[in-house]
């Protein structure tokens, strides 16, 4: 069989290839170090490594008073938008599978239209359109609206694909034992589909969390706002502050990414699943990878 170390592209290296690889490793290592050194000196030249720019991040109150409130706002907006988007997705995803044309077609139009419109535009529209209608639209509401409608539409597609991915025999068997339409949906299709959809749903929720940063553009007091406006206004350290905030985002998203991977492994292992998770993922389309 295949030996260890062989990949689809490369065979197991022989002695000559090993030597060559070692030389290349050295060469590329040096190149990468040079790039890193270049960036480091540029930062140094501009005084960006100065202690007083980074020291505020060692102080507890910078975090508790300036950064964590922003993080909390980010998480609250993401959590509410996630719940509402899941609801939106479930309703419209199932509606698109309706037997009635007057339900199916409007649902399809809503989902396809909102999937095509950028979240930032939806946020602007919520702000201006809302006050036109005499509603009170806070930045928070605008951000949650934009995230809900866009991600809800994407989730609707995931839900639809997840349900379609359950083998037809399952529904037929349900009808054969005398279940009604909504019973088949509720008792047979949805439970199996949800397990299959889980990884796609979680990756879409990671997308949603990252997109809360768009709130920065409308001055929602989120994590990015804390890092790019509030902290630098106190310490005049815009670049270091943005870098620290990026690290916070990366840590949170990596953790969520691992959660998604774990869920996927678990649902693959589970024998109860008859729907193919990959199918749900593919159907979500942009879902899994994007943003």
């Amino acid at each position: 069989m295949t030996e260890r170390g062989a990949t689809v592209l490369y065979d197991v290296p022989g002695p000559r290839a090993r030597l060559r690889n070692n030389a290349l490793t050295l060469a590329f290592g040096v190149v990468l170090l040079l790039v890193a050194y270049f960036v480091w000196t540029k930062f140094d030249e501009k005084g960006q490594w100065k202690g007083e720019l980074w020291q505020p991040f060692l102080r507890a109150d910078t975090w508790t008073e300036l950064i964590l409130p922003g993080l909390l706002n980010t998480l609250v907006a993401a959590a509410l938008a996630a719940v509402l988007a899941l609801l939106f997705g479930a309703v419209f995803g199932i509606a698109r599978l309706s037997d009635h044309r007057w339900v199916r077609i409007p649902a399809a139009v809503v989902v396809e239209a909102f999937r095509a419109v950028p979240v930032l535009m939806l946020i602007f529209f919520a702000q201006y359109g809302g006050s036109l209608a005499g509603l009170v639209v806070t930045e928070f509401t605008a951000v949650v609206f934009g995230l809900t409608v866009y991600n809800g539409s994407v989730l609707a597609e995931i839900v639809r694909a997840g349900i379609l991915a359950v083998p037809r025999g399952q529904a037929e068997a349900g009808y054969a034992i005398g279940l009604r339409k909504n019973q088949v949906m509720r008792l047979i299709l949805l439970p199996q589909a949800v397990t299959a959809m889980m990884p796609a749903i979680v990756s879409q929720l990671v997308v949603l969390l990252k997109d809360t940063a768009l709130g920065f553009v409308v001055a929602y007091a989120d994590l990015l706002n804390a890092g790019a406006r509030v902290v630098p206004a106190n310490y005049a350290n815009l670049i270091p502050s943005v870098i620290v905030i990026a690290a916070v985002y990366i840590a949170i998203n990596l953790a969520l990414g691992y959660l998604a991977a774990w869920l996927e492994r678990r649902s693959r292992r589970s024998r109860k699943v008859t729907a193919d998770p990959a199918a749900a993922e593919r159907a979500g389309g942009e879902v899994a990878f994007v943003r």
Partner: peptide
């Protein structure tokens, strides 16, 4: 087949993919 390049590529992808686009563009 070079671990250096694999590592650098993985670092790049993980950092950029997990940072909000808004932050990247502001930076």
């Amino acid at each position: 087949p070079l671990p250096v390049l694999r590592g650098a590529g993985a670092l790049y992808v993980n950092v950029l993919r997990n940072t909000p686009l808004t932050l990247i563009i502001v930076f």
